[in-house]
């Protein structure tokens, strides 16, 4: 279970190799990568990622621990970047390793759903003609709530 909050980019292949190395009990790995997407058709220049140092790491660790309790996981990895990211760049990744695919899939979704609403990150989109903070979405809260209903 490893968490990194960093400015630097990451290499998904390297992370998966490291995650599964020397562990022959792992039968399934699920990964998710979030990218900076331009929804406007060409006006987005970059996305600024702000976070709350200290609380971020703590919140991510708690989410990861909760997933580890709920599913049979051999290992997991969360990387979230901050700073100024250009269109198309990687923002974050989640990887879960389990003996079976169901646990790996569900745990990855759970990590993503909780990360979106409980980890203190904020996005600001910089366009050619101005900038705007990204609004949180009710659909993200609903996605998280399905794990407790």
């Amino acid at each position: 279970m490893t968490i990194s909050v960093q400015q630097d980019d990451f290499d998904l292949g390297f992370e998966v190799t490291t995650l599964t190395k020397n562990n022959i009990d792992i039968g399934a790995v699920v990964t998710f990568v979030g990218l900076v997407r331009d929804k406007t058709g060409g006006t987005l220049i970059s996305m600024e990622l702000e976070h709350y140092p200290g609380m971020t790491e703590q919140a991510l660790a708690e989410i990861e621990q909760a997933a580890t309790k709920r599913w049979s996981l051999n290992a997991s990895r969360v990387i979230h970047r901050y700073g100024n990211l250009k269109t198309g760049e990687q923002i974050m990744m989640v990887a879960t390793a389990s003996p079976h695919r169901k646990d790996a899939f569900e745990a990855a979704e759970y990590l993503m759903d909780y990360l979106k609403t409980d980890a203190p990150f904020w996005k600001k989109e910089h366009f050619k003609d101005g900038a705007d903070w990204v609004d949180s979405k009710a659909i993200d809260d609903a996605a998280k709530d399905r794990w407790t209903s």
Binding site: H51, L115, A119, P120, W133
Partner: peptide, 8 residues
């Protein structure tokens, strides 16, 4: 104090 989070 901060707005609702928008990470991921």
């Amino acid at each position: 104090f901060f707005p609702p989070m928008t990470g991921g």
